[in-house]
Computed example of a mutant assay.
Amino acid sequence: MSNPGEHEIAIVGAGMAGMSCAVGLALGDRSAVVLETSGHPGGRMDGLRTQGFEFDAGAQYFTVRDPVFRSYVDTWLSGQRVMPWRGWVVELDRGDFISRESAERYVAQPSMGALVRHLAEFCDVREHQAVARADRVDGLWRLRDGRGVELARCRELVLALPAPMALDILGDAAPQVSTRLAHFETTSCWAVMLGFDEPLPVPFDAAYVNQSPLAWVARNNSKPGRVQREAWVLHATPEWSVGHEDLSDSEVLAHLLRALETALGIESLEPVFTEARFWPHAAPIHTLGEPFLRDASLGLSLCGDWCLAPRVEAAFLSGHALSERLLQP
């Protein structure tokens, strides 16, 4: 194309859905550029590696139900991009626990986000590109940042984002699509990462927590491919997260550390590393019930886990299905 900032297809969002769509297009010889706000692909599969600790801050694992996704997972398994996680998962209630169902769980290695970054190797990903607004002018989408600087132009726009974020970007550029998006809400989640010098004296590796501000706790170093320093990830319940979204990181850390002590029945835990992260769009509350949303007359498509289900697999399948649609003549 004559303008280096003009593309056939632009995908906003380099999480699992966006990268699945981009890879599908690349396999079909369709060029697309992926614009990502942060410094690397990953989305809600992002994590943290610091001071000898490793944490999966967002998605903790994934399951496989669909045969299409299974075919990709089998390839990733053969290349050791993905491994089964055979950690002991329980239901936990103030120190008492019972085994949870033995579902087949998988994790990417050495981190969950590594799988998304692997997919990005096959695509044109532009990082630190914070798209704040999309306007359609003369048959093209013009993507701008918060200062109004144009980042790219494209004929086909894909928003691989949570529905509320997509709605903010579209504004009044696609009224019918925006009306539908307005019905989709998300839950938020406070995540806390704790590093310890010694293993915690509990026999299990992860737990769904009852009667607690915590919904989930996991020994991250029980997952394959991780360093062995004792690292725990805590996810607060949606209700607690919404009710405490304005707390400072230090206040959240104090609350949820006490909640972990209560859940485990252990007094005075002393982590040597702490960090809190707030996920404003952790999971969809409502889903579309179909793989993607598209207005062909505007050259506009949307994909993500909010279309199908709050799972890694659903995000992948949404992007994959959209790529197949866009490859049709």
Rank of each mutant, 00 (worst) to 15 (best):
S222E: 06
A174K: 05
I169A: 07
A174T: 13
N210F: 11
E156Y: 12
H183K: 13
T187F: 05
A152S: 09
A160C: 06
V158R: 09
C189D: 00
D168W: 14
W232A: 14
S212E: 03
E251I: 14
R153W: 10
V149D: 14
D205E: 14
R142C: 15
R142F: 12
H255K: 13
R226T: 01
V217K: 00
L143T: 10
G243Q: 15
T186S: 02
A160K: 04
A236C: 03
V209C: 08
G243T: 14
T237K: 08
W240I: 13
R147F: 12
N221I: 05
L159F: 08
M193L: 13
V209T: 06
R153I: 09
P224N: 07
A206I: 01
H255L: 14
R142V: 15
D249A: 05
L151P: 15
G195K: 00
S188G: 07
R258L: 07
N220T: 00
G243H: 04
P162K: 01
V202P: 09
C154A: 11
V217L: 04
D205H: 11
A174L: 05
R147M: 13
R229D: 00
A191T: 12
P199C: 04
E245W: 06
Q228S: 06
S241V: 06
S212Q: 04
V177F: 12
D249S: 06
L200V: 00
P238I: 01
V158G: 11
L167Y: 10
V209I: 06
A160P: 03
L257D: 05
M165F: 07
P203E: 12
D145H: 08
R226N: 02
E150Q: 14
P164F: 03
G148A: 10
P203L: 07
D246L: 07
E245D: 15
D249W: 01
A259P: 09
E230K: 00
V149Y: 10
G195N: 01
A231C: 07
L253N: 03
W190P: 03
V177Q: 15
H235I: 03
Q176F: 13
S188D: 02
D197P: 07
E198R: 08
E261N: 08
M165A: 08
L247K: 14
R144I: 10
A182K: 08
M165N: 04
V209M: 06
G195Q: 00
G243I: 15
R219H: 05
G146C: 09
V202G: 11
L194K: 07
S250E: 10
T179C: 11
A191W: 02
L170Y: 10
A182C: 11
G171L: 05
L159R: 03
T179E: 15
R155W: 02
V192Y: 05
P213Q: 12
L253H: 04
H235S: 02
S188Y: 02
R153E: 07
M165Q: 08
R226K: 10
S188F: 01
P164M: 13
R219Y: 00
M193W: 05
E185K: 03
A215F: 11
K223E: 08
V202F: 09
D197S: 07
L234K: 02
A166M: 06
L257Q: 04
